[in-house]
């Protein structure tokens, strides 16, 4: 299933759109993962747009994130995910060169990035729940004083969206762990497909981070 011929062929589009035995020129696993990613992207965009709807129709919205720890932590988390995406590309590249050992090493690094993200994010949750007393359907008393017209839905939006994303990261770490464990048995396409999933997790965070965190930075 080589695609290098079409990459340089100038009249590629006509052939690409003509159907044939492999209309997409990818394996069924990869196509399945792409379709899952598209549907999951719709789930996340529905959640983010629901959050934006609530926020746009409210008089006020809490902006509680101080520079330390929330913004610093979430920025470091973003960098972790971006770096782990890069190491995942390197893993897929190594797997394409049939270098299984290097692929496993790169996947381990990717998992490390994902685990760092999880630990930092759980600490962030702990900080909000324990130190502030944030609950899904009520604001902490301190916040309610500072933003009196805000609806009590900050916690619901925050916990749902970041929680679902965290669940995706956890799933991804387990998935990558399984791939790394089985690296000698799995085919190159499996590594590539797990990479697609991991990049998607990264991609979602690129929208969650600005919308949840950066739009609610505390004006000191």
């Amino acid at each position: 299933m080589s695609t290098e011929a079409h990459a340089v062929d100038q009249s590629t589009l006509a052939a690409d759109w003509g159907g044939g035995t492999f209309p997409y020129h990818v394996g069924h696993k990869k196509l399945g993962m792409w379709l899952f990613i598209v549907s999951d992207a719709m789930t996340f965009s529905a959640l983010l747009i629901g959050y934006s709807y609530v926020r746009a129709s409210s008089d006020e919205w809490p902006a509680p994130f101080h520079f330390y720890p929330s913004v610093v932590f979430s920025t470091v988390m973003t960098l972790c995910l971006l770096a782990s995406s890069f190491t995942m590309v390197m893993a897929v590249g190594a797997s394409a060169r049939r270098d299984k050992r290097a692929a496993r090493r790169w996947i381990m690094l990717t998992m490390l990035g994902g685990l760092t993200f999880l630990v930092l994010h759980l600490y962030e949750w702990y900080h909000l729940i324990h130190d502030y007393g944030l609950k899904p359907f009520s604001l902490p008393a301190e916040w309610a004083r500072e933003w009196p017209n805000a609806p009590p839905l900050f916690g619901a939006c925050f916990f749902t969206i970041t929680g679902l994303h965290m669940f995706h990261v956890l799933t991804g770490v387990i998935y990558l762990g399984w791939i790394a464990f089985k690296i000698r048995r799995v085919r190159h396409e499996d590594v590539e497909v797990s990479g697609l999933y991991w990049h998607f997790v990264d991609l979602v965070w690129m929208f969650v981070f600005p919308l949840i965190y950066l739009m609610s930075v505390y004006a000191e």
Binding site: T3, H6, A7, T12, L13, D16, W17, P23, Y24, H25, V26, L31, W34, L35, V38, S85, F86, M88, V89, V92, E192, G195, L196, H199, F200, D202, L203, M206
Partner: peptide
């Protein structure tokens, strides 16, 4: 950037891009 390079969509067949 992530979709095009990390997810490799830029190097896939045009029909896949136009479908997704």
């Amino acid at each position: 950037l992530i979709v095009a390079y990390f997810m490799h969509l830029r190097f896939e067949r045009m029909s896949l891009v136009l479908t997704l």
